[in-house]
Design a protein around this nucleic acid. Structure first.
Lengths: 168, 168
DNA sequence: TATTGTTATACTCTATAACTATA
DNA sequence: TATAGTTATAGAGTATAACAATA
């Protein structure tokens, strides 16, 4: 087992306060030892995903879209006429949980459920013109977001990351 | 601007996913077009994280540990005597949400809250012997899990992935 | 006054069973 | 009988305000 390096955290002292009697030597906060977590793919993956989603969510808040909603609109746009089951399954969403999302889309006028003439059980999903317009704005926003991610990884790093993640 | 002249979001279309083998000559299943999602770091990251967690959760179910619980035990073990606030913050868990987890750990006899003599507001967290024993088993399990992940990435790929993810 | 642990609460996400209408 | 969409529901996970004890 490789030894763990001692934490060598440089912490800046708090800014001088106006006139407070505080000169007792306080214990240095000292960063925590993350132990084996830093080498666990699952843990590092989770933290990275939260970090990227954090930026994504902030970028898309003005459009009123959550990540899952964006992905659903993209998929309906790329596959018009498909059923709820197909779209939901492709996104890893349970069918019951996709119903409320489609309800919202219809209420906001972004997508519609058309009745299928071949199988009257299914709904053929399509985007409305408003939905396509919003998706257009979304693709501008996603470009800004993705550029920020790419700035952290480098263009080559981003490609490498996508290829590695595709193996999992 | 260097290399990238036009839209940074030039995204390749999705590859077809391995569909279930079907020899029915009825309706062709026709995999969905994932559109730009396959090139979005956030989306691919999320799906990969869910995939890895899926294996992790199955591996740790016999030990009665969820991913967050495992990470908390690891952190307490590597940093005995730290406060709830410190452990929770290092894991990105809100302080109120960490209370129930510590309650469970104490009920199961895995960890204890010792009273601190320097600051009676805080609890000094430590693992019990049972907690350390369970963590020992967990590290065996995590090795199996991690080996399965590494089998998909290759040893070099795994290292590269960890380095890339650390930049996010 | 500020902080730690805590309670209460609410909101999102996710998972499963069961109903209906079609097939 | 099986399937698509739906309803209801329960469980995680997550976020914030507020309170008591302590600093």
């Amino acid at each position: 087992m490789p030894g763990r390096s001692k934490a060598t955290t440089k912490l800046r002292r708090a800014q001088a306060e106006p006139a407070a009697p505080d000169d007792v030597d306080e214990a240095p906060p000292a960063a925590l030892d993350m132990g084996p977590l830093s080498g666990l793919v699952g843990y590092v993956l989770r933290r990275a995903q939260l970090s990227v989603f954090d930026d994504f969510i902030k970028c898309f808040a003005p459009l009123g879209l959550r990540p899952a909603q964006f992905s659903a609109l993209v998929l309906i746009d790329a596959n018009p006429g498909r059923s709820q089951r197909e779209i939901a399954a492709a996104l890893g969403i349970q069918r019951p949980n996709f119903v409320a999302m489609m309800d919202q889309f219809e209420r906001r006028g972004l997508a519609r459920r058309l009745r299928s003439d071949t199988d009257r059980r299914t709904h053929a999903l399509v985007l409305t013109d408003d939905g396509k317009r919003l998706l257009g704005e979304a693709e501008t926003v996603v470009a800004v977001h993705e550029a920020r991610v790419t700035a952290r990884l480098g263009a080559k790093g981003r490609d490498a990351l996508l290829n590695l993640l595709a193996r999992l």
